[in-house]
Amino acid sequence: MDKNLIVTKINKAVQGAVLEVRRFGRSDTRSIWVEAQSIQKVAKILRTDPELSLDWLENLSVVELSDALVISYFLQSTQGTQPEVILRASVVPDSPTSPVKLPTIQTIWPMGIPMEREAREMFGIQFETSPQDDDADVEFDFESSPSLCLPSGLSGFPLRKKFNK
C-alpha cells in the first residue's frame, strides 16, 4: 500500500505525470520519474498532501547523461510520514549552448532557491514561474539573486559536457 501511495496520489492529481518508478542506484530509495513540465503540480501534491507532506528538499542535482539533463529532487518529510523519495525529470536541450525551461518549485520548497540558481548558472535550466503561483503560504521572502559564481559575459554553461569543446 505504502509503495504505491505516492504514485496513486500523483496520478490522481496530475493525470499521467508519472513515467516510471525505479530504484535509486543500489539503495532502497525509490526514484519517481515524472514529466518535466508537470513538476510544479507534482511538487505541490507531494508537499501539501497530509499523508505525504514531503516538505524538505534536501538537494537538487542536475546530471547530463547522453545529451539529456536529468534533474533530481531529493525529498524528505519532517513530519516523518514518508521515507525519502527522489523526484526526477529529464529535459533535452536543443543544442549544447541553448537553455531549457522548467517550472520552478521555489514557491513550494523555498530552500530550493539557491539550488535552482546554481542549476541555472551551470546548466542553463531556466526555471519559470507561472501566473497561477500562489505565494500565499510563502512566509519569508527569500531573494533569488542573479548569476553569482560565473563572470559576466560568459557564454555557455560550464557543467555541460560539451562546454568549450
Binding site: V63, P114, M115, F142, E143
Partner: peptide, 17 residues
C-alpha cells in the same frame, strides 16, 4: 560523470537577510 555536493552553508547564506 558527475560529482555534486550539497553543502550546508548555502542554506545559511540564504537565511542571512
Amino acid at each position: 560523470s558527475r560529482v555534486q555536493f550539497r553543502t550546508p552553508t548555502v542554506a545559511n547564506l540564504m537565511a542571512i537577510p
